[in-house]
Each structure stands twice: as C-alpha cells, then as structure tokens.
C-alpha cells in the first residue's frame, strides 16, 4: 500500500510538472497539455487521497484489474518480487552497458549464454549453442530485414568481422 501511495504521488508530481511546463509554451502548443495536465492533476490528487484513506481505514488495496489489464498473481512475498524485479532490471542495464562497450551482436550473444547458464541453469555446452543461435539470428535478421544495431566502443577501435563489427 505504501508503494502504491508513492506511485500515486509520482502521478501528482508528474502532472504538476506537465501543467507547470505547459504554461511556458506558446498558446497553440500550450492548450492541449495544459488541459490534460490540470484535469489529470485533480484526478491524481483525488486518487492520492483515496489511497491514503484506504491506508488509514486499513482497507486492502484493490489490486484486481477487472477488465482493465492482465491480473498479477504471485505465490511469493511482494518484497521478494520487488527484489527479483530490481535484479532483473539491473541485468538489463548491465546488458545495455555491454552493448555500449562491445556492440549489440557480441553483447547479446554473451547475455544469452549467461542467462542460459546462470538463470536457466542450462549446461555450458547448451548455453554456448544458444549464444551462437542468437548471433546467427541477429545476422540472419540483419541480412533479410536490413535492420541495424547499436555499435559499441570496441567497434570504433578494432576492425571486427561482420556481424561482430
């Protein structure tokens, strides 16, 4: 519930910023974001008070989505969910760091090997095969669909063969 209040506060802050920033734009650019921002700010405040009211009255947060979105059903503690999510987001940020350093194909292939080996607990040989498959997929898609990928620092310094370069 406290996390929920924090997220509601985020919305109050966001729409306050939107409304304030919109005031600085010329008239024709201002009207749309200002109208949306002010309307949403009022709603965000009402939502925040509702959350606080629920907390004070000890009413359980209505986490059910009904028709609005996919339901989340956890059989582990919420604190553990957040911890694991944080770790996984950290892994993705590390992947981005890898891409920045050694380029997309190489970083992504190594990422696949590591995920297979340490998260899926696959055998090393299978992990390496998965990594090669990832590299092959990237090369195939690049050739067939003419797509490009982010270059890394290493590509700027060393002349690597395609698709690593």
């Amino acid at each position: 519930m406290n996390g929920s209040i924090l997220f509601s506060l985020f919305f109050v802050a966001l729409f306050s910023y939107v409304s304030y920033s919109a005031l600085g734009y010329v008239y024709l650019a201002r009207m749309f974001p200002l109208a949306v921002g002010v309307f949403a700010l009022v709603l965000a405040l009402v939502n925040l008070f509702e959350d606080i009211w629920r907390l004070r009255r000890n009413i359980a947060s209505d986490s059910g989505m009904g028709l609005s979105d996919l339901e989340t059903d956890w059989d582990i503690a919420h604190s553990e969910v957040w911890l694991k999510a944080g770790l996984l987001i950290g892994v993705v940020i590390a992947l981005y760091g890898g891409i920045w350093l050694i380029g997309y194909p190489l970083a992504m292939s190594i990422f696949v090997v590591l995920v297979y080996r340490f998260i899926a607990r696959a055998k090393l040989i299978n992990s390496c095969i998965a990594g090669m498959a990832a590299l092959g997929f990237i090369a195939f898609v690049a050739k067939m669909l003419n797509v490009s990928w982010p270059e890394g620092l290493i590509q700027k310094l060393v002349n690597l063969p395609w698709p690593l370069g």
Binding site: A40, N47, E50
Partner: peptide
C-alpha cells in the same frame, strides 16, 4: 478497471506521452 480514476489517469499519462515532441499547431 475497478478504480475508474486510475483508468482515466492512465489515459492522461498516455495523452501526455503522446504530446511529447513537436506541437502540431505551433513551432514548439
């Protein structure tokens, strides 16, 4: 969803994300 205010707020969030960038009616 079960809390309509949140639905409306989520839609407003989408509208704000959609408003990012060049304004259609002004050079801003």
């Amino acid at each position: 969803g079960k809390r309509p205010i949140r639905g409306l707020l989520a839609a407003c969030l989408g509208l704000v994300i959609g408003a990012i960038g060049a304004a259609p009616a002004a050079a801003e």
